[in-house]
């Protein structure tokens, strides 16, 4: 029985490996771009680098409704059998949006682990402070916890007002 299970588990892992190997990653990225376009958001002028288990986008400009919105230095996507990871580095808003949102996001990490398949964890760090959260894929719920920085508390009170303050952390929930 154990031999049988081990055999089919090997087949399954090998099959997943082959799926990742032949996955048309660039086309999936194009599909995501088209989905974003429906929300008036365009990712442009980027350089794409596609590997077997990774997919990187460098120097991407984001336009919202025809206005230059932000620049992302690097988006790294790593797909392994046990873990999927998306890392966003140096996300910078253009000056015209500086008054509405904090300008710099230094690092964002989105993780999906095989051990917790229902959840996606989010960690971010930037001018707003420290942020961590979870996405429940079954209940389709996003929960974020923000440890706001002094800049955030001073300049972006309007954003913080939309969040609940619990134990010194600002909490935000969104159902999609």
């Amino acid at each position: 029985m154990i031999k049988f299970l081990f055999k089919y588990l090997t087949y399954f892992i090998f099959f997943i490996f082959c799926i990742f190997l032949f996955l048309p990653k660039e086309n999936i990225y194009y599909m995501m771009e088209k989905k974003l376009f429906e929300y008036k958001t365009i990712v442009s002028y980027e350089k794409i680098n596609s590997g077997i288990f990774n997919f990187d986008v460098k120097n991407a400009y984001i336009f919202y409704d025809g206005i230059k919105f932000a620049k992302i230095q690097e988006v790294k996507t790593e797909m392994y059998l046990y873990e999927h990871k998306v890392q966003v580095k140096n996300f910078k808003l253009f000056d015209s949006f500086k008054a509405l949102f904090p300008q710099n996001i230094n690092n964002v990490e989105i993780l999906h682990n095989v051990l917790t398949p229902k959840e996606v964890t989010i960690k971010a760090e930037g001018d707003f402070g420290l942020l961590d959260g979870k996405v429940d894929l079954v209940q389709r719920k996003l929960k974020l916890f923000l440890k706001a920085s002094s800049i955030m508390k001073k300049k972006y009170k309007s954003i913080l007002k939309q969040m609940k303050l619990k134990n010194g952390k600002y909490e935000y929930e969104y159902q999609f």
Partner: peptide, 19 residues
């Protein structure tokens, strides 16, 4: 796996959206 991805490839868009 190759067959599944080929089908997926035909379904997915082939061009990017540029500003």
């Amino acid at each position: 796996a190759y067959f599944i991805n080929t089908v997926l490839f035909f379904y997915l868009p082939k061009t990017t959206v540029e500003y």
